[in-house]
């Protein structure tokens, strides 16, 4: 059963290709052919050096928790259950990735704890898709 989520395209910057890879069960981010840096969120040019030579590189899915925050206020007006947990994960490859915990809550979190990638079925007004989240490693 797909979870209802706020629209991915509420803001101006989302990118079809990122979500297509997610639907194939892969977390891929843009690696720069110039400096090697990985940009996230999606960019048109490398956030470190400005090069447009970018390729979609698979991430290992391993990471550690850098921080967390839990919504007690219902900003999305009933769309998401409250409290709503969010985590900030440092991917093994370097970028920080904002996501949700799967199978644990903020009470279980210690900063630095290892996590691994999982995908869950979600749905927004554009249809069903796979959302990258993280479970305890």
């Amino acid at each position: 059963m797909a979870e209802k989520r706020p629209d991915r395209w509420l803001g101006p910057g989302h990118h079809r290709e990122f979500w297509d890879w997610c639907d194939k069960g892969e977390l891929r981010l843009q690696r720069c052919g110039g400096c090697g840096g990985i940009s996230w969120p999606v960019v048109n040019a490398c956030e470190f050096c400005g090069s447009e030579e970018l390729s979609w590189e698979p991430m290992s899915g391993r990471g550690t928790i850098v921080s967390w925050s839990t919504f007690e206020r219902d900003y999305y007006r009933g769309l998401l259950p409250i409290p709503w947990d969010t985590i900030l994960v440092e991917l093994e490859e370097g970028p920080l990735f904002l996501s949700n915990p799967k199978g644990f809550t903020w009470q279980d979190i210690t900063i630095g704890m290892p996590v691994k990638l999982a995908f869950i079925p979600c749905e927004d007004s554009a249809g069903e898709y796979s959302l990258p989240v993280f479970e305890k490693a």
Partner: peptide
């Protein structure tokens, strides 16, 4: 401010909470 809607993360307050 807008990129993390699919994960339900938004608002100014959330920035400071994460910090």
């Amino acid at each position: 401010y807008y990129y993390y809607h699919p994960w339900g993360w938004s608002s100014q307050a959330a920035h400071w909470a994460m910090i």
